[in-house]
Amino acid sequence: MSRVAASLAALGLTVSLHGEPAAQTEPMAKKIARAAESGPAEREALARFKQEIAAYAELHAAEAARLGAKPETAAAQKALAQSIAARRADARQGALLRPEAQGLFRRLIADQLKGPEGLDARKAVVDGNPRAQDEPSPFAPRVNAPYPTGAPRSTVPPSVLVALPALPKCLEYRFVGRDLILVDSVAQLIVDFLPAAAPELPVK
């Protein structure tokens, strides 16, 4: 059993409940287990990604400490975003989600979203997505840009979240259209993105 499948099992999500098989969660666990099978190159890319996000978390903590303000106020959040953006002024798309890791991310995501099994997850990605058809204010992600005020947040399906590498508390994944973005969860700053990370998203 893979690490992620094991973690789901540890949560009681694949075991029987009240004597009934947990039919809903078994396909999800299988998908996740499949997605976690990586070769050596991907494992190396994954390790590098973890180093990059750990370094980002340190930067976030250092800037937050330097500014000294608690993140409760909008002013403090904006100051933190500006400070981090200044420290990462040279950052470009791919700084954290490096080219060698991009294939792995696309595969991990596709494994959760493709085919009939992925229909519910695709619906979740489209739900609230700022580039959904009924959303009047779509935007294109840009490194060091703030997540636009008033733009909705896509749901990130639990199956995708469990399949993707875990993030430190200061970062989270979101989708903008099919792009995967990494957002600073306090500064609301886009720190990196992966274009076309998700496959096409038909929901019927």
């Binding site: 009681g12 999500l13 009240h18 969660t25 519910d120 619906k123 979740a124 739900d127 639990p158």
Partner: peptide, 27 residues
Amino acid sequence: HHPLYSSGRTHGSSLEARAVLEPLFLK
């Protein structure tokens, strides 16, 4: 926010959320 069960045309039931939350609710 997202309903596990809903008869809405626009959104309806959030099945991905249901898959992970409902087992915990039952448990």
